[in-house]
Amino acid sequence: MDSNIKENFQVGPPMVFFLVHAIQVGVGILGFQRVVVQRTGYDGWISVIIAGTVFSLALSMMYSILRAHNTDIIEIHRRLFGKWLGCILSFLMVLYFFALAVLVNRTYVEVVQVWMFEELPPWVLGMISFVFFYYLILGGFRAVVGLCVIGVVLPSAIVFILLLPLEYAQFLNLLPIWKHSLEEILLGAKDTALTFLGIEFILMFYPFIKNASDSQKWAQLGHWVTVFSYTLLMFVSLAFYSEEQLNRTIWATLTLLKVIELPFVERFEYIGVSLWLIIIAPNIALALWAASRGIKRMFPIRQRYALIFFLTAMVVIMPVFQSRQRIDQFNDYVSNVGFYFLTVYIPLLFIIQLIVSKRSKNNDQKG
């Protein structure tokens, strides 16, 4: 493990539960139903479970790779592919982490613009994000973990609130089960990729976990709680909306909140949008931390300066995505990159690791 990580900078294995669950639940939960239902209709919940299972297997492969080297992905790339190719692969991964931070931030700004402040320029929230995340990440990895804990615990009440629309539910919509072909179900599972992205950050923060090899059960628990949450929300949405309504509703989860009526709150969805800031903040913080940490590990640059660069770039890039079409295209691009990273690159890296380990073992036996 990276010897530079002192014990007072590390966190216990149970914290991995909050890290994994917090990074997976973000802006994707606001409207993933429409994307899945377009291919699978009322069988969408099956696609969610299949996607969760595939990503769980990818998580197990990542832990196998990390245990073999006991360090982060930057050093693993260097050991397996050499200095130059390893650096290129690591740099591409850093760009992917940064793209995730921009995607989450820009998507949330769009939600705020549509639902609350239509004329709010993207750079305003971008500047607020700059200051907040700069000081948070400078506090170190433990500060980011604290934000993840808050991002899981405080908004947890929303899960129960989202069950209230079941008063108008029609569960017969879900029958008969499996009306679509296996190909359509699998394509629907692929479309849920953005909602489950985030488990790959374990490749960067693994050295910051005490007894990291024992944390896999907590990572899997965090992931499966996410799968359960998305499946439950998909059930609620399929029972509440018609298939045609879901195809036309961009943010189905937020629209569910409009149904809720409380005597002291007229527009409950405003509270939902505000609370979602607590949910998406860990997404952005961990992505920026991983990107800046990756630059520090590859080049002789302090993490503070790398963080300033990424935060500045995020503020500059956000106004570029003005239209819904551009934001959707960016969502699709990042989602596809994340999907192939977890379902193609990680298994490939896992196989390469097995081959290298076997050769090393044979060499040791011959020696």
Rank of each mutant, 00 (worst) to 15 (best):
I327F: 00
R106L: 08
R304A: 12
L277K: 01
E243F: 00
G28Y: 00
E7R: 15
K210S: 13
A169K: 04
F18R: 10
L238P: 05
A306I: 02
V16P: 11
L59H: 08
G31R: 02
F196C: 01
Y135W: 15
A22Q: 00
L348Q: 04
V236T: 05
E243N: 02
A99L: 15
R142G: 14
W84A: 10
L342H: 01
V112F: 09
F132S: 07
A306C: 01
M93E: 01
M127S: 14
S181W: 09
F321Y: 09
G188P: 05
D214V: 03
F235I: 13
F133G: 04
I5V: 15
I161S: 04
D214R: 00
R297A: 13
M15N: 11
L147H: 05
N4Q: 13
L286T: 14
C148K: 12
V259Y: 13
S242H: 11
Y241M: 03
V48F: 07
I308S: 04
E110Q: 13
N173Q: 15
A281N: 12
P121L: 03
K296H: 15
M298T: 09
F240V: 08
L92W: 04
I260H: 05
A212Q: 13
E266V: 14
A22I: 11
H77F: 05
Q216S: 03
L307T: 06
F132I: 09
A157I: 15
A281C: 12
I351Q: 04
V153M: 08
E244P: 00
A290C: 13
G294K: 03
F141H: 02
I351A: 09
I278P: 05
M62V: 04
W178T: 15
